[in-house]
Design a binder for these strands. Structure first.
Lengths: 234, 234
DNA sequence: GCTTAGTCGATCGTATACAATTTCACCAAA
DNA sequence: TTTGGTGAAATTGTATACGATCGACTAAGC
């Protein structure tokens, strides 16, 4: 609920940071389709700022992998290739077990309560229908992994996971099949249960398979038009 | 050896990317001390470009954690706190075992040869004396971990490791004690040997202890002057 | 003498201006 | 109908301009 201050938007201090967050949210929420051109002038007009600030925001997003900046052509919402998608999930398989073990070291009863609460919210959203609910569900699903990362108390790792989750959301939005990805909810619960029991090996095992399942539920056959450009450019 | 084109510097296309790389190299090589102010005007004058490009470079470096940008005060070479340093190494412990296992899947004889070659170079540098050799040694030590990451064939992970190694170098430059950190060379060799034998569990174990040793050889008592500013600011 | 207010210089934040490049529409020729 | 070329319009790349903020120094007051 970050977009709370719409009515007085032009009075708010609209900094690069704010623009970046807005665009990122829009991309992750799928309100901006992959491949969409983000014209500096247009975005600037939207926020009532000059191109200078917009450029900064777009460059930052480019660094996060959510936007591709092509020289002399402009910025576009990232259109991750299947290979890129595979790398993102492969990276998650490499690091999330580590996160799990580290987080477990720092977890107390209150942490488990927070996790359970998040899972309940997630389950509630799963029951609902409609675009909005689906978006919220994808977001909640990512928040689970993000919350685990935050429990490591490690800001560096948190940033990495933040980026990975955002890019995963983009990939799921692109290649995800209708409703199947929801089955991850039960897996989240199983993971928490395993941690709670102190069975970290099992928790890690479940986590890896969970990521496998997310990836398996994607249909990453070669894409639409936009790929031709990438195939021959540069 | 990236700074090969000094004589004709003003004719080169000095883009944001180039400036960023130069500054990063200077930081990692310890030619720029932590805490050093990077004035936009000064850097711009140095490269004969406007502040616009410099700002872009500094913001990118800030995202990498090598530079701190303080609002209305300017950019400074990062001065990692002990806590930050701990998080960097903790992150490496969380992800490098994963890298190891993934890299091992893709490694053939030629890969081992490359690794051995790097290790020989590392050993050679260890024998030499002088600042230059020490810098090269720290760099070579990082390159070992970077090479392992590159063998995963995963660009996302490679970028993460690149950032972690750069920041580690900064930390070592700051808190490292004279010659002790060199003992890691033998550990690198042991890790390669373990991978070669297919004993990944042992390789991971060695890797974690290796990172432990690097961290243990630091003297992270509370720092010099520059920290006072951070202590009271914000 | 120490504290506090006020001014000045330096540096950053943002907007704007101009140059360079790409895109696209239009038209002519095959 | 398609292909190829030309020029204007749009868009990005970079530099510069100007207002805002911070830090240091000076000076006045306690």
């Amino acid at each position: 609920m970050k977009t709370a201050a719409l009515p007085t938007e032009d009075q708010i201090d609209v900094s690069t940071q704010y623009i970046r967050d807005c665009i990122r949210d829009a991309i992750v929420d799928r309100r901006l389709a992959p491949g969409t051109k983000l014209s500096e002038a247009d975005v600037g007009a939207l926020f009532n700022v000059s191109r200078t600030l917009v450029r900064g925001a777009l460059q930052a997003l480019s660094y996060e992998g959510l936007v591709n900046v092509e020289k002399n052509r402009g910025a576009f919402v990232a259109y991750p290739s299947p290979e890129e998608a595979r790398q993102i999930f492969a990276t998650r398989r490499m690091i999330e077990p580590g996160i799990l073990r580290e987080a477990a070291k720092h977890m107390g009863p209150s942490h488990f309560q927070h996790l359970r609460q998040l899972l309940m919210e997630e389950g509630r959203l799963m029951g609902e229908r409609g675009q909005t609910a689906r978006r919220a569900e994808i977001k909640a699903s990512g928040d689970f992994h993000l919350m685990l990362a935050s429990m490591t108390g490690n800001a560096v790792m948190q940033r990495f996971m933040h980026e990975l989750v955002a890019r995963s959301s983009l990939v799921i939005a692109l290649y995800g099949q209708s409703a199947i990805s929801s089955c991850g909810h039960q897996e989240h619960q199983d993971i928490v249960t395993a941690i709670e029991r102190g069975d970290l090996d099992r928790a890690c095992h479940l986590m890896i398979h969970h990521i496998d399942h997310i990836e398996a539920d994607l249909d990453m056959r070669e894409n639409k038009s936009s790929d031709l450009r990438e195939a021959f450019k540069l």
